[in-house]
């Protein structure tokens, strides 16, 4: 087991344990906080897979942005400590069917994909290649992304704005 493997299993363990706490914790603040470690671990795995730009995006947008939004959303609720989150087991049979179908689809996808088993320890950085594609092939998409962000910005602000009397 190389150092690369050890680091991978470290991040995988971090993701699994914190995701488990996120799902099972009865305290919504603890859930949101442990979600941070899940997202961070996923970013680490992205980096280990050679997708360095995606890893940094995961850190900046998910850990730095969306999670803050979630914690603010939690803090906006009136009674944080008294929220009764149900973490018990209900609807066992439908859940088993749903999870089984999803797991089956994932497993078949895992088995059918021709995995690239090249060692990814000395990968080139991807940011430059992404930038080149954004300015040649996907230049329209790049500008459309700007439009999409503009729509999201205006929409979000008008929904969240307090109505003036």
């Amino acid at each position: 087991m190389s150092l690369y493997d050890i680091i991978f299993y470290l991040f995988a363990l971090l993701v699994l344990v914190s995701a488990f706490i996120t799902v099972t914790s009865k305290n919504i603040v603890h859930s949101a906080f442990s979600l941070m470690f899940t997202l961070f671990g996923v970013a680490g795995i992205y980096v280990l897979l050679g997708a360095d730009f995606l890893g940094v995006v995961q850190l900046l947008v998910y850990v730095g942005g969306i999670l803050i939004l979630m914690i603010f959303g939690v803090m906006m609720t009136n009674e944080i400590t008294n929220v009764d989150i149900k973490t018990g087991t209900t609807q066992v049979v439908p859940a088993i069917i749903g999870v089984g179908l999803f797991a089956g689809a994932l497993t078949s996808m895992m088995l059918r994909t021709g995995w690239n088993s090249q060692p990814s320890e000395n990968m080139d950085t991807t940011t430059y290649a992404i930038g080149k594609l954004l300015l040649t092939e996907y230049v329209l998409i790049f500008e459309l992304l700007g439009m999409l962000l503009l729509v999201a910005l205006i929409g979000a602000a008008s929904v969240a704005r307090k109505e003036k009397e």
């Binding site: 969306i66 803050i68 939004l69 906006m76 962000l149 999201a152 979000a156 602000a157 969240a160 704005r161």
Partner: peptide, 9 residues
């Protein structure tokens, strides 16, 4: 919340 929303964009 609104500031965080704008920050995210």
């Amino acid at each position: 919340y609104v500031i965080a929303l704008i920050f995210l964009i």
